[in-house]
Amino acid sequence: MHNTFTYKHADLPAVRPEIKAEIIALGIHADDLILKSQGNYRELEELAETLDNCLDTCELNLNSIRIVADSNSPLPSMRDLPMEEKQIIFSTALTSSIAIEALASVFGKSPQQIASELAE
């Protein structure tokens, strides 16, 4: 199990110079490996798999960070939600939209009428 971190927008920590330097060095090293492996399918495949695993781990860590609105902001936005919550909201809205369109077609009513009746 990994930690979950919550930050306000204003409190997001800056990128530390030593970490920025390591990220740049990693990019340069990856570019160098790609050039050295050019034309070698197996080497490039292994490199791509390694980089893909690193990206997956990085994204998992990014998704464990929740960014909330600063106290002076009246309402949070979709940007403030973790990726999983954004995906749930999107899939729920899409499913609801499809269901309302289907019901409107079956009952010969407008989607607005169906939505209004469902809300009641």
Rank of each mutant, 00 (worst) to 15 (best):
S110F: 05
T57D: 10
L94G: 02
C54L: 13
A99F: 06
L51P: 00
D52F: 08
H9W: 15
P17M: 05
L47Q: 02
Q112E: 15
E43P: 00
N40Q: 09
T4S: 12
T6A: 04
Q38W: 03
E101N: 15
A25H: 07
S105H: 12
F90Y: 13
A115F: 03
I65Y: 02
G108V: 03
A69D: 00
M78W: 06
G108P: 04
K20G: 03
E84C: 02
V15Q: 08
D11A: 06
V68K: 01
I19K: 07
L55C: 05
S116P: 00
E49W: 05
I67D: 01
L55N: 10
A10W: 03
I100M: 02
N61G: 09
E45S: 08
A104I: 01
R79S: 14
D70K: 03
Y7V: 02
H2T: 12
I19L: 14
I98F: 12
D56Y: 06
I114A: 00
E18F: 03
I88T: 12
I98K: 13
L12W: 06
R16S: 10
S77G: 14
S110H: 08
S105G: 11
I88L: 14
T6H: 01
F5M: 14
E59L: 14
P82Q: 09
L33W: 03
K109G: 01
Q38R: 07
P82D: 06
E22D: 13
L12T: 05
F90R: 11
L118F: 05
K36Q: 09
G108I: 07
P76V: 02
H9V: 09
A93P: 00
L47N: 00
R16D: 11
A69N: 02
A102L: 12
E101T: 13
I34L: 12
L94E: 14
G108Y: 09
L62E: 05
A99M: 12
M1N: 08
A104W: 01
S96G: 09
Q112T: 15
I34T: 04
E46T: 05
P76N: 06
L12V: 08
K8Q: 11
G27K: 13
I23P: 01
K36H: 03
A14C: 04
S116H: 11
E45M: 06
P76C: 03
T50G: 10
P13H: 07
I34Y: 02
A69E: 01
S105N: 12
S37D: 07
I67A: 03
H29Q: 13
L60H: 07
S91R: 13
N40D: 14
S96E: 12
A30W: 03
V15S: 10
E101L: 14
M83N: 12
N63E: 10
A14E: 12
E46Q: 13
F107K: 15
D80N: 11
P76E: 08
E85V: 10
A102P: 01
R42D: 14
I114W: 00
Q38L: 07
N63F: 01
R66N: 11
L103H: 04
N72F: 06
Y41L: 11
D80S: 05
A25T: 06
P17L: 06
V15R: 05
E101R: 15
M83E: 15
F90C: 04
P13G: 04
I67N: 00
I23Y: 08
S71L: 07
I88R: 14
L35P: 00
